[in-house]
Simulated scan of single mutants.
Amino acid sequence: MLYFLLGENRDCIAVDAKEWLAWYKNTESENCDVAEDFLLDREVRISTMFTGLSWEVSPKEPPKPFLTIVFVGYGIDEQYRYSTWDQALIGHKKTVAKLKSDFGLQ
Rank of each mutant, 00 (worst) to 15 (best):
S101F: 11
F50Y: 03
S83Q: 12
L39R: 00
G75F: 15
Y74T: 15
A88G: 07
I69T: 01
V96N: 01
L6K: 08
T51M: 10
T95L: 05
K60L: 09
R45K: 14
D16W: 03
T84N: 13
Y80D: 04
M1Q: 09
G104H: 06
D16K: 05
Q79W: 06
K94M: 14
T51Q: 10
T84A: 13
I90M: 11
P62N: 09
D16V: 04
L53M: 14
E61Q: 11
K98I: 08
T95A: 03
K93L: 05
L2H: 08
Y80L: 04
Y80E: 04
S58T: 10
P65C: 01
G73P: 12
K98D: 08
P59M: 09
I76T: 12
D102Y: 06
L89Q: 08
R45F: 08
K98C: 13
D86P: 04
Y74P: 10
D37V: 00
A35T: 07
A97G: 13
W20S: 05
W23I: 09
N9E: 06
K100M: 11
G91P: 01
Q87A: 11
D16N: 10
N9K: 12
L21A: 15
L67A: 05
A88V: 02
A22W: 15
E43P: 00
S47D: 10
G52L: 08
Y82S: 07
S101T: 07
F66I: 04
L5K: 04
F38V: 09
F66A: 04
C32D: 07
K98L: 14
S54H: 08
K64A: 06
V70R: 03
R10Y: 02
E56M: 12
S54L: 11
T95N: 08
I76S: 13
R81F: 11
Y24M: 12
A88S: 11
T68D: 02
W85C: 07
E61V: 02
R81P: 02
F71H: 09
I13Y: 02
E61Y: 11
V15W: 03
A97Q: 13
C32S: 11
K60P: 00
E8I: 03
A88Q: 05
E30N: 13
L39Q: 00
N26R: 15
D77K: 12
A97N: 14
I90R: 14
E19F: 09
L99W: 04
P65Y: 01
K18R: 15
G73T: 09
S83T: 14
